[in-house]
């Protein structure tokens, strides 16, 4: 019954959690992708710029090396630039307004039983479900 993708999901999830644990216990930081990047983009996190850059360098580089060795997985990313730009803008504005995304609110927030993290996760999952329903099943653009 257990699909191989689910097992890979669990294994990958454990690695993600280990990364978050390392960043928390090693650096005293919450591993939130949107916050780490956003602080560099809007300049609010310049005091810890080198730490942020190091994190992002690892985040981009290790999958790149893994893709060279084992081959890149298929991402099925849309080629529609309008969709990409609209989605990117929404994700950028939304995560900074909410102060977190799937990693910060989801992984790190829920595991701390943070009410903000739990509420954020409920709302972005609901909105995500509605978005897929609207753009896939109603409008048929994705």
């Amino acid at each position: 019954m257990l699909q191989p993708e689910w097992i890979m999901g669990l294994v990958g999830g454990l690695i993600i959690g280990a990364a978050g644990a390392l960043y928390l216990l090693g650096n005293g930081r919450i591993m939130g992708a949107s916050g780490i990047l956003g602080g560099l983009v809007d300049g609010s996190g310049m005091a810890s710029a080198s730490e942020r850059l190091a994190f992002l360098a690892g985040l981009v580089a290790l999958p790149a090396v893994a893709a060279l060795i084992w081959g890149a997985p298929d991402t099925h990313l849309t080629g529609d630039w309008i969709v990409l730009i609209a989605a990117g803008l929404l994700v950028g504005i939304g995560t900074r307004l909410a102060n977190g995304c799937t990693s910060g609110h989801g992984v790190c927030g829920i595991s701390r039983f943070s009410m903000r993290g739990i509420v954020a996760t409920v709302f972005y999952i609901l909105a995500g479900g509605l978005s897929v329903m609207l753009f896939k099943h109603v409008l048929g653009v994705i």
Partner: peptide, 10 residues
């Protein structure tokens, strides 16, 4: 913010 983010995520 979470609603906007979720919309773009989906």
């Amino acid at each position: 913010g979470s609603v906007l983010f979720g919309a773009g995520w989906g």
